[in-house]
């Protein structure tokens, strides 16, 4: 088996995650889908690291994880405060921007 299949898997997972972001209304699930996309990217980085024979890809994946952690913390805090004020975690309810 050629390791390039890992990349196909990563692409597939990324696409699934992206579609999930578009379809789901629950903000928490949307967030999970974003995590899925980030993880797919990480997988691609790791595979690229193996491809090039150096560790830079893994470093980038590592940083992605850190940033994702920060993002999750803030994102979930936003969801919680949104839920407190609106009693709903639906992204469609936060549609006050429309005319």
């Amino acid at each position: 088996m050629n390791p390039v299949y890992y990349l196909y898997l990563a692409a597939l997972l990324f696409t699934i995650g992206a579609t999930g972001v578009l379809i789901r209304r629950n903000a928490i699930v949307v967030f999970m889908c974003i995590e899925l996309m980030l993880n797919a990217c990480n997988l691609a980085f790791v595979v690229f690291s193996r491809m090039h024979g150096n560790l830079d890809g893994q470093i980038i994946a590592f940083f992605t994880m850190v940033v994702a952690a920060a993002e999750v913390v803030v994102g979930l805090a936003i969801i919680v405060s949104l839920f407190r004020t609106r009693h709903s975690a639906s992204v469609d309810d936060a549609s006050l921007m429309k005319l």
Partner: peptide, 17 residues
């Protein structure tokens, strides 16, 4: 064109995607 701007984040996300 305004109808495109329906205020739903998901709609905008589709455009981005």
């Amino acid at each position: 064109l305004r109808k495109l701007q329906n205020g739903y984040a998901r709609s905008y996300a589709v455009s981005m995607f």
